Simulated scan of single mutants.
Amino acid sequence: MGDCCRDAQPFRLCSGLRFLGYIMILLVFAIVAVSYYAVIVVAWGPQLLHGGLLSILAFVIVLLFHLLLVLLLWSYFMVVFHDPGAVPVGWQPASKGTYSALENSVILADHIAIDTRESEFSSTEGSGRRPSIRYCSHCQNNKPPRSHHCSVCQRCVLKMDHHCVWVVNCVGARNYKFFLLFLFYTFLETVLDSLALLPHFIKFFGDARNHSGSPGNLAVTFLSFVLNVAFALSLLCFVVMHTSLVLSNTTTIEVYEKKKAVEWKYDLGKRKNFEQVFGSNKLFWFFPLFSKNDLHDVPALHGLDFPTHSDIEV
Rank of each mutant, 00 (worst) to 15 (best):
K260C: 07
F286C: 08
F306A: 04
L233H: 00
R271F: 14
E103F: 11
Y176A: 07
H148M: 00
K177L: 01
F284Q: 08
H50Y: 08
A94R: 14
D267A: 02
L72Q: 12
S127K: 09
E275D: 07
C164M: 01
F225R: 11
L233S: 05
P131M: 06
A232H: 03
D294H: 09
F204V: 04
V62I: 08
T252I: 08
L295Y: 10
F81M: 09
L72S: 11
F278Y: 09
N228T: 13
L49G: 10
G128V: 13
G52T: 08
Y135Q: 04
Q140P: 01
V171R: 02
L48R: 00
L72E: 15
N293K: 14
L188C: 15
R6C: 15
G21P: 07
E275F: 05
M24G: 07
P131C: 00
F19W: 08
R155H: 06
F184H: 11
V32Y: 11
I112W: 12
N210F: 09
I312R: 10
S132T: 01
F178R: 00
S122F: 13
G85S: 04
S147E: 00
L223S: 14
A109N: 15
Y266P: 07
W44Y: 10
V41A: 11
F77C: 10
L195P: 11
A113H: 09
T251F: 10
I23K: 11
K282Q: 12
R155Q: 11
V39E: 05
H162M: 09
F222P: 13
I253R: 00
N141F: 02
L17M: 15
F182E: 05
V298P: 01
V42W: 07
A232W: 01
I133R: 15
R129M: 12
A208T: 02
L198D: 03
T243N: 06
A109F: 10
C4R: 07
V168H: 07
L68T: 06
V89C: 05
K143F: 05
V152T: 11
Y266R: 01
F286Q: 02
S105C: 03
V298A: 00
L218Q: 14
W285P: 13
